[in-house]
């Protein structure tokens, strides 16, 4: 009945809005619903992976050694840390395998920090393609998170080598690396999406981010044993730092690959935190990015 009333309206079809509605025209640049947006994004999965691969290739296209750098970079990193902490400072902080401890921390931290750095520029650095072509904009930060995942896979191979060389036994516990990386990847994807929207609006963020990331690194017990927090900080601050998502993901990796390692909390609690952070940041970042969909590329 209501339908008839609308179509039988004598004035229908005189205003531009009514003509548009009659011919099925939609408002230019309107935002799709959350479900429709997720479906669009799924339809663009080939674009996302092609874009990620293209970025990896472009990144090394001017280097003579090309993609070998994907493995050389983490090896060089590990060597530098070995030189400083292993040979010069002879620091071990009470850890039986400090080099393995250090490298696990550095590689896992780098995974998230480079996603943050890349995510900030996902929109502002790709205005050309955004203004030229129509696709769900979330494709860009997700592709950049995928690029970093490719780098991480190379780093993990190096890390496995370091662990074996430093005397860690190869056990079935190493399989826990896979769910840990999966959770961190979901966390990173959400973070990339959130950072992309923030970076598109707040252009100053790019200048501030290195300082935030460095602070985050010191709060994640990358360069020193996690027991330092309990020894030097007031209890409430140490408790708060145990919630730090990056500390959580780093500890999961250390726990999976190393036989003797000190952790901040019981391992069950760490896994729960890791899943919670992945869910919260993954879903939150997606919704936050989607809400700004029609703004990207404007101005």
């Amino acid at each position: 009945m209501a339908e008839t009333a609308v179509t039988a309206e004598p004035d229908a079809g005189t205003t531009p809005a009514a003509i548009a509605a009659r011919h099925g025209l939609t408002v230019a640049g309107a935002r799709p619903g959350l479900g429709a947006y997720a479906r669009q994004l799924w339809a663009y999965r080939h674009f996302i992976s092609a874009y990620a691969n293209a970025r990896v290739i472009a990144q090394f296209s001017t280097a003579k050694l090309g993609r070998i750098w994907q493995v050389l970079t983490p090896i060089t990193n590990a060597l530098v840390y070995y030189l400083i902490f292993g040979i010069i400072l002879k620091a071990d902080g009470g850890e039986p395998n400090f080099i393995g401890y250090l490298c696990a921390g550095v590689f896992i931290f780098t995974f998230t920090s480079s996603v943050v750095t890349a995510g900030i520029q996902a929109i502002s650095g790709n205005l050309g393609i955004i203004r030229a072509l129509h696709f769900p904009r979330a494709s860009l930060p997700l592709a950049l998170a995928m690029v970093q995942f490719q780098h991480l896979v190379a780093s993990m191979l190096v890390l496995a080598g370091i662990m074996l060389v430093t005397g860690e036994p190869l056990t079935f516990e190493w399989l826990l690396v896979l769910p840990a990386l999966l959770l961190q990847s979901v966390f990173n994807a959400g973070l990339a999406l959130a950072m992309a929207r923030l970076g598109a609006k707040l252009t100053d963020l790019r200048q501030v981010m290195p300082f935030i990331l460095r602070t985050w690194m010191y709060a994640s017990a990358v360069l020193y044993p996690v027991t330092l927090f309990k020894d030097h900080l007031p209890p409430w601050a140490a408790d708060l730092l145990e919630l730090n998502p990056l500390l959580v993901y780093i500890e999961l990796m250390r726990h999976a690959m190393m036989s003797e390692v000190s952790l901040s909390s019981p391992i069950g609690q760490i896994w729960a935190l890791a899943a919670g952070w992945a869910l919260l940041v993954g879903a939150g970042g997606f919704i936050y990015f989607w809400r700004g969909e029609q703004e990207y590329g404007r101005g």
Binding site: A17, H23, G24, L25, V27, A28, A132
Partner: peptide, 26 residues
């Protein structure tokens, strides 16, 4: 759909594609 309108409205069929000289690719 790349620029918001201050007043008035624009209705389009499907998604229009803009092809400009500054549409840089990779």
């Amino acid at each position: 759909g790349l620029l918001p309108v201050e007043r008035g409205a624009i209705f389009t069929q499907g998604q229009p594609s803009l092809l400009g000289v500054n549409a840089a690719l990779q």
